[in-house]
């Protein structure tokens, strides 16, 4: 898939060498506010939980942020699609996604890494959503799927960022913003802000993969239903589940032009 190819292009660079420059160059490269100045401290370059480097992870995140940022920008540009309170909400979310794109690009390039290029998106998903930019309910349903996917994607990469506390913290700070977005969009659509079992409340079967495995009740090898009187459905709501990189790419690839 094309998206996978884009991600894999970054394998061409000498990542270990690039990472060595992180702390030295990022401060100068940063044009955004304070947190970036403290973003990188020299540390273990190799991510811990997989073969991906920290730059790989940031590029993976960047790809998802490109997708979200362009989606909201196109929605806001679509005449009459988003009005009133809905427009205000989407405008704030879009501004956050743009900020995430800039933050990640600055972090990657400031390190000597190469930010992946923005893919060409097809938000109709090959015709699955022909009214994506003319029908607000469809637009918001897909937005919900993107945000819930984003939460799972960042969570799935946390272990790969343990080598650098500043990067990990920033990723967690993005992760919880995505969760705020997800909750808001879900509630605007009359769903609960949290995910019950593995329920896909978008109304689109294409989004089933976004919720697969969210009905997990085993945490750290412990079946939470055996240690809590709380009902099983609420226990599943109380824990958001991560998604592995490939599962996220499979979802995102539906919206990338082949």
């Amino acid at each position: 898939m094309k998206l996978t190819n884009i991600i894999e292009q970054t394998d061409a660079i000498d990542r270990r060498a690039a990472f060595g420059q992180l702390g030295r160059t990022l401060g100068k490269a940063a044009t955004v506010a304070m947190p970036l100045a403290a973003f990188f401290t020299p540390g273990r370059a190799r991510a811990q939980a997989s073969g991906d480097t920290i730059i790989d992870v940031l590029n993976f995140a960047l790809t998802l942020e490109y997708l979200e940022a362009e989606y909201y920008a196109m929605g806001l540009d679509s005449n009459g699609l988003l009005t009133g309170d809905m427009r205000e909400t989407v405008a704030l979310i879009g501004a956050h996604e743009n900020a995430h794109v800039e933050f990640l690009r600055t972090a990657i390039s400031g390190s000597g890494g190469t930010p992946v290029e923005k893919p060409t998106f097809d938000f109709t998903a090959g015709g699955t959503f022909p009214n994506i930019f003319s029908d607000a309910p469809t637009f918001m349903a897909v937005a919900q799927a993107f945000e819930d996917t984003g939460v799972r994607a960042y969570k799935g990469q946390a272990g790969n960022l343990m080598g650098n506390g500043d990067v990990l913290t920033a990723a967690l700070q993005i992760h919880s913003v995505e969760a705020r977005h997800a909750s808001m969009i879900r509630r605007m659509r009359d769903s609960k802000g949290w995910i019950t079992n593995a329920m896909n409340t978008t109304g689109a079967d294409a989004a089933n993969a976004v919720y697969a495995g969210e009905d997990q009740v085993s945490q750290l090898g412990l079946d939470v239903t055996t240690v809590s009187q709380v009902a099983r459905a609420q226990i599943t709501e109380a824990f958001d589940e991560p998604l592995e990189k490939q599962a996220v790419l499979d979802i995102a690839s539906l919206f990338i032009e082949a």
Binding site: T169, H175, A179, W194, F239, D240
Partner: peptide
Amino acid sequence: YNGAGRLISDPNHLVVAGKIVSVEARHAAA
């Protein structure tokens, strides 16, 4: 939770903290 993630050593513990913090963020938004 955002501030505590970097204090954790075991990736499994980090992921569990991540599973909880995003739910707290969903709560906060609502």
